[in-house]
Design a protein around this nucleic acid. Sequence first.
DNA 1: CTTTTTTATAAGGTATACCATAAACCAATA
DNA 2: TATTGGTTTATGGTATACCTTATAAAAAAG
Lengths: 220, 220
Amino acid sequence: MPETESREMYLKSIYELSSTDELVPVSLLAKRLGVSPVSATEMVKRLEGYGAITHQPYKGVALTESGLKRALIVIRRQRLWGRFLADRLKIRWSQVYDLSCRLEHATDETVSEALAEFLGYPTTCPHGHPIPDPDGSVEIPPATPLNEIGFDQEVVIIRIDQPELILCEYLEEKNLLPGTTLTIIDEAPFNGPFTLQVNGKEISLGREISARILVEPTPS
Amino acid sequence: MPETESREMYLKSIYELSSTDELVPVSLLAKRLGVSPVSATEMVKRLEGYGAITHQPYKGVALTESGLKRALIVIRRQRLWGRFLADRLKIRWSQVYDLSCRLEHATDETVSEALAEFLGYPTTCPHGHPIPDPDGSVEIPPATPLNEIGFDQEVVIIRIDQPELILCEYLEEKNLLPGTTLTIIDEAPFNGPFTLQVNGKEISLGREISARILVEPTPS
DNA sequence: CTTTTTTATAAGGTATACCATAAACCAATA
DNA sequence: TATTGGTTTATGGTATACCTTATAAAAAAG
């Protein structure tokens, strides 16, 4: 399979979207990549032909072993670049994901391994995700979506799932970054927003966003 | 004009090839980019339509003012990445040009300016070429092709023109890098190779290669 | 000045990756 | 069970960027 940027993006997106569920609906994939469902189906067939994914019609797609490895190698590169952009170049946290996404496709093994050494083999990206090994293996530290946490439980943000630009700009403004400590102090009815206590301030946060914020109880 | 990788490569190549002559023959451009003359002509027409280059049929192409600026911005990015790869990642000198060439297209202004600051605003790339300003302006320090230098004149290598992989691997092996001091001690007849004195050793070097090595007399 | 070489153009094709529209199909629900 | 809605397939189209083959035109060389 020739490694094009488009194919790498599909594999990466399937990986990111399959974090919760087993099968990723093609429609969801299409929405994620900003293409029509027809285009996504086309590409899904191509990737299936290459043995990178499996497709259960009307159900969704999943990465094969080799597809998963490819995805994780791409993700390793993006997360290494993420660290570089954030830590060394002092690029704004919210911009890092999108910018590292462009660099990941222009990076081969020589560069990514030299970069890893240069950075001192970091273990997580600026959004809190673990950086896979060069051979494409990761262990994902357990964490709980913020919307599943009860009241008055002090938690610390571990990572942000699917950290797109708009979400990150919002979180950056509210200072909800990995490492931030917070407590849910109220919950509006009818699936309304949570009220959080963060750095002595009260913040209102919608359900959808809070599902993307993964936390764990503070080790008190 | 949408900035595709291919277009950026054409503009960059035209710039690099026009260092000596005014007009770059389309055939030369085609050879440089590894495409057929027909394909190069097609692209030349497109770029002319965008106002990035001018084309004098049967003569060659030249960058317009805006095309030159675009080319120099791309070149700035490549040369900054070149410094990063060589100095920070310790990538082998001969590999740097090709690897930085991939990164240049994945870099926007935010990243390239942050990179410039991180690197401490270097003035030359690892091959000795000056790094253009962010607005696309350069001054090229004078230097003489090695094949135009007389005998027994001690010179120092300033830069390597068109530093492709194969050339660089050869030069790296022979230790002919920017900063190296050498003297031409002999010249074979019928356009045969030069004999150089480098680091106490004698080296034989062909004419074509020596035309790519730009030097200046050592300030003795 | 003619011939050869180089350069350009014309015509037809390939591959990737996207689009819209319409028809067929499955699944879940009313 | 029939219908609705999401999914898939089919068809035809776009854009980029490459290819080969062949012809035409200009430049250089004899």
